[in-house]
């Protein structure tokens, strides 16, 4: 009796393959194969119309000697760093504030802070482009109405200013998400810890510095690591908002897009995608190593 039952369940367990089969078939065709196909394409010259020509490592040689590529890496890093630092600080601050018991309308504030993130990035880009237009944009009109400046500022005319605007927009668009993640982390800290600290006579500031932040550290590290991967792929906003400022807002992803889909150099674009991948990999590994060593330090203390 027992034996037949076991055989029956063994038989059933093979149905598992049936349930996961669609996933793996589609993943192999539409996920894995294109990755390999990109790699294959990166060794050829292909404009999308005529048949690809095998050219060996030429694309990679061109990539490593191309200033435009290095420039796009630098642009991406600058935009990412200028946006991520204030973004995380603001997110953490707001998460802490909205975790206070006395604040009313928590949900409304959280919703408003998160709202910019669900709006299509490309739409935000077009909107930013219109609002920061130096002759007709509302930002300059506002600054002049408030007498902060007499002359309209040519926002996208200066390369660094243009990068700062893109960073500010990224920050504006993403701090709400990090705030929600921090909030979830804060809510998982047991109330009893705070109460014990209060009994011991600690004030709010001491509690935040000595209890909340150390306990929140893993969540903060998590957001930093995920934002590296996201930040290296900044695309939509610089694509539509930045064009006027020459190439200072050409991020790696925009460079890849332009190379492939406006200059039709698909082979070279494939080598850019692998170059990008290696850079993202390096940064992910660095951040993982840093978080590991941090963990060890805290454990030894």
């Amino acid at each position: 009796m027992r034996k037949t039952k076991r055989i029956k369940s063994l038989k059933k367990s093979r149905f598992g393959y049936f349930f996961i089969a669609p996933y793996f078939i589609v993943f192999l065709i539409f996920g894995l194969y294109p990755i390999i196909y990109s790699f294959y394409t990166s060794f050829s010259k292909w404009d999308g119309f005529s048949p690809p020509v095998f050219i060996g490592l030429d694309n990679y040689q061109r990539l490593f000697t191309n200033l435009e590529f290095y420039h796009s890496i630098l642009n991406t890093l600058i935009i990412w760093i200028v946006s991520i630092v204030p973004e995380l600080i603001i997110a953490l601050l707001l998460a802490l504030i909205l975790n206070e018991r006395f604040v009313k309308g928590k949900h409304v504030f959280r919703a408003v802070f998160y709202f910019p993130n669900i709006v299509t990035a490309i739409t935000i880009g077009v909107l930013v482009n219109l609002m920061f237009d130096w002759q007709t944009g509302s930002i300059n009109k506002l600054l002049m109405a408030l007498h902060i400046t007499d002359h309209p500022i040519n926002w996208f005319g200066h390369s660094f200013l243009a990068q700062i605007i893109i960073s500010a927009v990224m920050c504006w668009q993403w701090f709400g998400v990090n705030m929600l993640i921090f909030t979830a982390g804060l809510q998982s800290i047991p109330r009893t810890l705070y109460e014990a600290a209060e009994v011991d006579g600690a004030n709010r500031f001491q509690i935040t510095m000595n209890i909340t932040l150390p306990l929140l550290k893993p969540v903060i590290l998590f957001t930093v690591i995920t934002s590296i991967i996201g930040g290296m792929q900044i695309f939509e906003v610089p694509l539509v908002a930045g064009n006027a400022s020459g190439d200072s807002t050409q991020t790696m992803m925009v460079y890849l897009y332009n190379t492939a889909f406006t200059r039709f150099q698909y082979g070279y674009a494939s080598s850019i995608s692998y170059g990008m991948f290696i850079i993202i990999l390096i940064f992910s590994i660095i951040s993982l190593l840093v978080s590991r060593s941090r963990k060890k330090n805290t454990q030894s203390v």
Partner: peptide
């Protein structure tokens, strides 16, 4: 499945485009 969460999307773009063609 979990490992594919780590793969950045841009790796497959050109290959995907070519394959769809």
């Amino acid at each position: 499945v979990l490992a594919t969460l780590m793969i950045p999307g841009e790796l497959s773009i050109i290959g995907f485009f070519r394959l769809m063609g």
